[in-house]
Design a protein around this nucleic acid. Structure first.
Length: 106
DNA sequence: CTTATGACTATGA
DNA sequence: TTCATAGCCATAA
């Protein structure tokens, strides 16, 4: 079975532990496509959702910003969900990558 | 084959 | 610091 780019992205995002966040570029690199951060984002959009085993809310921009136009029920909903998992936020409204950035194999 | 789109990232002003 | 633009590459038509 050939795994589409989507499925590979899903596979990597699924490995992100609770209370941790990963950047699109990081996910792309782990799946063997360091230049395909945008395609990862598109895969998230096309993902089955959190209920489908895809914690796409744990995937953020390289600077810790959350995805614009989010659709889990509202942008504030994603932040609430991440905080509920133990992710720290900065006063600017960005994720504290210095504390919650996910490292592969950990 | 080419063109258009996009939940990104890096760079410059 | 923030904002705008260019480059990147997979997928669809």
């Amino acid at each position: 079975m050939e795994r589409s780019f989507f499925e590979r992205a899903h596979d990597v995002v699924r490995q992100v532990p609770r209370g941790r966040v990963a950047t699109y570029g990081q996910v792309a690199r782990l799946m063997g496509a360091p230049r395909c951060a945008r395609q990862v984002g598109f895969a998230m959009h096309a993902s089955p959702g959190v209920a489908g085993g895809m914690p796409c809310h744990r995937v953020v921009f390289a600077d810790g910003s959350l995805a614009p136009g989010f659709a889990f029920g509202g942008p504030g909903e994603q932040r609430r969900m991440l905080e509920s998992e133990g992710v720290a936020f900065l006063p600017d409204g960005r994720v504290d990558l210095a504390r919650c950035a996910w490292e592969a194999g950990r």
